[in-house]
């Protein structure tokens, strides 16, 4: 109980966090409802904590796209815990379940929100990577808007020179959020675009340069090498750059998201994840597995197609959103 009280108190402590968590709850209503409803259902349906119970729990987690391995590990741990504490009643196991899930999300380390590594002075370069159609360009538009609202001078680099209409797409976003876009023609060398954009950003004294890249499937060795090359150009031209390499992940993606995080991580040293399309019915549970297995933090979530539909990922708020019902119920209990 105390665990949830602590968590809840934390959320009520400042108005700001409350707002954030409300936005989260709103954006994740579907996720939260279905997820916690299911766990409640489960608990209500079973009186005994037995094999069937765990099998059902396993299915709930799997249906949320939590990685198979993560789920299996979790179930093992739960079973051990249940044995250790000699829990027989399903109502009691509820808190153990959520506690373990929170643990997977947050790990041992701090509970802080993973923020962007923005430079105090000088240029910050952010590189976006990911497979085709996950929402890189859209997220760049949204992020540019957000940073601009914070008073930053932002510049975009149209590094997707491959896909038809990709340059125009970013350009359109540039117009929408009133930010300049550095571009070459379709089919030109993406590394050269990025190079030019860096020079432009320097000479204009821009605060943030956000670089778009073409979507690529992570098993295409040559294309992944191209990405490493782009990153090297940034490294060479900007001290300590790129300051962020953000991998866009589609929440609808299943187990392959793990392979994406792993391979893009190897090629470009991904510093954070943007989980897009969380406004759909997909649960995005793969984030759990990615954090658990690769340790890459999620920094933003995409909750729609408008420029304001980007929110900072707050693991606590996310977990709070997932388990809000359950926690409230527990408060009543105690």
């Amino acid at each position: 109980m105390s665990f949830f009280k602590k968590l809840k108190e934390k959320f009520q402590s400042t108005e700001k966090t409350e707002q954030v968590s409300d936005k989260y709850k709103e954006g994740l209503t579907k996720t939260r409802k279905s997820f916690s409803e299911k766990i409640n259902d489960l608990v209500a349906r079973y009186r005994k904590v037995d094999e069937d119970f765990f099998e059902d729990l396993e299915e709930i987690l799997i249906s949320a796209d939590v990685g198979v391995e993560t789920v299996m590990d979790l179930i093992d741990e739960l079973q051990m815990e249940v044995k250790r504490q000699n829990i027989k009643d399903t109502n009691e196991v509820k808190s153990v379940i959520s506690e373990k899930l929170v643990e997977i999300y947050q790990g041992e380390d701090d509970e802080e929100i993973a923020t962007l590594n923005l430079q105090e002075d000088g240029l910050t370069v952010i590189l976006f990577v990911g497979v085709n159609g996950v929402g890189k360009t859209t997220t760049i538009g949204k992020l540019a808007h957000q940073l601009k609202e914070q008073g930053k001078e932002v510049l975009l680099a149209a590094g997707d020179t491959f896909r038809a209409g990709a340059i125009e797409q970013l350009n359109e976003w540039g117009k929408r959020v009133d930010v300049d876009v550095i571009k070459h023609s379709e089919g030109s060398d993406p590394a050269a675009v990025i190079f030019d954009a860096i020079q432009a950003a320097k000479s204009r004294n821009a605060d943030v340069l956000i670089c778009d890249t073409a979507g690529r499937l992570q098993n295409k060795v040559n294309l992944m090498n191209e990405l490493s090359k782009i990153k090297r150009v940034i490294e060479r031209e900007v001290p300590n750059g790129p300051h962020e390499v953000l991998l866009a992940l589609d929440a609808t993606t299943g187990q392959n998201a793990l392979s994406q995080a792993k391979t893009f991580g190897e090629a470009t040293n991904v510093t954070g994840i943007v989980l897009t399309k969380l406004d759909g019915t997909a649960k995005g549970g793969i984030v759990l597995a990615i954090r658990n297995e690769l340790g890459i933090p999620v920094k933003y979530v995409g909750l729609g197609e408008q420029m304001t539909d980007l929110q900072q990922f707050d693991p606590q708020a996310f977990v709070y959103g997932l388990f809000a019902d359950m926690m409230e119920e527990e408060n009543l209990d105690s």
């Binding site: 538009g141 038809a164 209409g165 990709a166 125009e168 797409q169 359109e172 929408r176 379709e186």
Partner: peptide
């Protein structure tokens, strides 16, 4: 979607 038409035209 921004530039979806451009994409098809291309």
């Amino acid at each position: 979607r921004p530039a979806a038409i451009d994409q098809l035209q291309t």
